[in-house]
Design a protein around this nucleic acid. Structure first.
Lengths: 216, 216
DNA sequence: CCTCAAGTGAAACAGTCGTTTTAAACGTAC
DNA sequence: GTACGTTTAAAACGACTGTTTCACTTGAGG
C-alpha cells in the first residue's frame, strides 16, 4: 500500500512512547502496523533512522510556532520590548497546544519527547538538543533585557528552572492516566489552557524576585 | 570474595546510569564487576530484583533525611509554623547534598534516579513513586498552611512546577559534562550549594504570587 | 506484450538476551 | 575433617535482536 510509511511511523510513535526505544523491537512495530518486517528497512534503512525521521517530522513545526510567536510579540507592540509574560507564553503555549492536537502527535508524542530528552542514547539526545538549539538561543536572548537585575549565572539557572517546570508539567498532562494510578487526590483534568496561565505567572514571579543574599 | 554483592551493585549503578536499564545486560554488569555471570543470579535472583535492591538502598536514606529536616524545622522555632523557605529547603537540600557525596551515589546515582523517573517500565516507576509517597504527603501537608491564598488545584500545579524545576536542576548538575558538549556559554560549575538558595528563592516567589486572573 | 522499478512475503543470518544447570573449587566454622 | 555458604567456570536453554537476502507480486510506461 501507499501508506506503508505512515503506518510504520504511526505504530512506532505509539510503541516508543509506551515502552521506550530499546525495549521496542522492529518486529513489534511492523506487526502493529500490519506491515512486513522488511518494509521498515526498505523505507527507513534502520531503526535509528526511523527514530530520527519521527522526531524531525514532529519537532520542527513546534519550534517554528514558538519562534513565530516570539517574532510577533517582539515586532507587535510598536515601541518597547515584549513583557516577560509574553515571552514566557510564546515559549510555553505551543507545546501545550500540541498536546491537545492529535494530528501533531498529541499526548502520545509528548510522552515520547519527554522520553527522548532523558534517553541514555547520546545520539538521540544530541539530535533532540539540536532541534531546540535555535529556540533556546532566541528565547534566552529575548529574556535577557527583561532581567537586568540578574547576573549571567543567575539567569542561566533560572532559565533551567523554567525548562524543568515546563517539561515536567507537560509530562504530567500527557501522562495523566498513569498519574491517577499512582497518586490519590488528583484533581480533575482542568482546562489545559489554564495551566499555561498558572505556569506563566508562577515563573514570571520567580524570574522577577531579587537575587538571594549569600549570607546563609 | 566477600564483596561480590557490592561489586555487582557498584558496576550495575554505573552502567544503568550511563546506558539505561534495558540497554544494560547482565553480562555487561558481571564483566565490569569482574564477577561470574551466575553470581548475579545467585545474589539477587534476577535483573529486576537487582534494580529494586539498588534503589531501596540509595533512596531510603535520602528521604529519611528530608523528613528529619522537615521535622526539625516544624518542631524547631517554638511558636508558629516554619517559613515557606524553610520547607522548600528541607525538600531541596538533601538531594543536592547527595549529589556531592560519592558514598551515597553522588552524581552517578542522581543520573540513574532521573532515568528511573522517566522509565518506560511501569514497575520501576511504581516502585520509585512508592519510595517517595510519604515525602510527598508530608511536604504537601506542610506547604498547605503556608499557601492559604491558593485553591487546591492551584496548589497541586505549583507543587508540580516545583518538582519539575528541582528534578531538572538536579539532572543538569549531575550531567554537567554532557551539557558542556551540547551547549556553548555554560558558566563555570558554581558552588553547588548556591543553587539551593537560588532555587528556593525562585520557587518561594512563584508560590507567593497571587492566582492569575482568568480574563485572558 | 514486455520491461523495469517499487514493494511485499517469508526465511535465514549471526548475535545477544535473561536465565538455568552442572561441576568443581574455595574459605570458614563446628 | 567434614559440612556449609559462597564463588567460579563453562556450557547450554529457548527466545528474541537488527539486518539481509531473494523470490515473488504488482502496476505503470514503452
Amino acid at each position: 500500500m501507499l501508506e506503508t510509511r505512515s503506518r510504520i511511523l504511526n505504530a512506532a510513535e505509539g510503541l516508543f512512547a509506551d515502552r521506550g526505544f530499546s525495549a521496542t523491537s522492529v518486529r513489534m512495530i511492523t506487526s502493529r502496523a500490519k506491515v512486513n518486517l522488511a518494509a521498515m528497512h526498505y523505507h527507513f534503512g534502520s531503526k535509528d533512522q526511523l527514530i530520527q525521521e519521527l522526531f524531525a517530522l514532529r519537532l520542527s513545526p513546534l519550534n517554528r510556532q514558538r519562534l513565530a510567536l516570539l517574532d510577533r510579540c517582539q515586532a507587535g507592540g510598536g515601541a518597547g520590548e515584549p513583557s516577560l509574560e509574553q515571552i514566557l507564553e510564546a515559549f510555553i503555549r505551543p507545546p501545550v497546544q500540541l498536546i491537545r492536537d492529535p494530528e501533531r502527535g498529541g499526548m502520545r508524542f509528548m510522552r515520547l519527547l519527554s522520553r527522548a530528552f532523558n534517553s541514555p542514547d547520546g545520539a538521540i539526545r544530541e539530535m533532540i538538543y539540536g532541534q531546540f538549539a535555535e529556540v533556546i538561543e532566541r528565547f534566552s536572548g529575548a529574556l535577557g533585557p527583561r532581567l537586568p537585575h540578574l547576573s549571567r549565572e543567575e539567569a542561566f539557572w533560572r532559565f533551567h528552572f523554567m525548562v524543568g517546570a515546563m517539561s515536567h508539567t507537560l509530562h504530567v498532562i500527557a501522562d495523566w492516566k498513569n498519574l491517577e494510578n499512582l497518586f490519590t487526590d488528583v484533581p480533575e483534568p482542568s482546562q489545559v489552557d489554564e495551566v499555561v496561565d498558572r505556569l506563566v505567572s508562577f515563573l514570571a514571579a520567580g524570574f522577577r524576585t531579587p537575587i538571594p543574599s549569600k549570607e546563609n
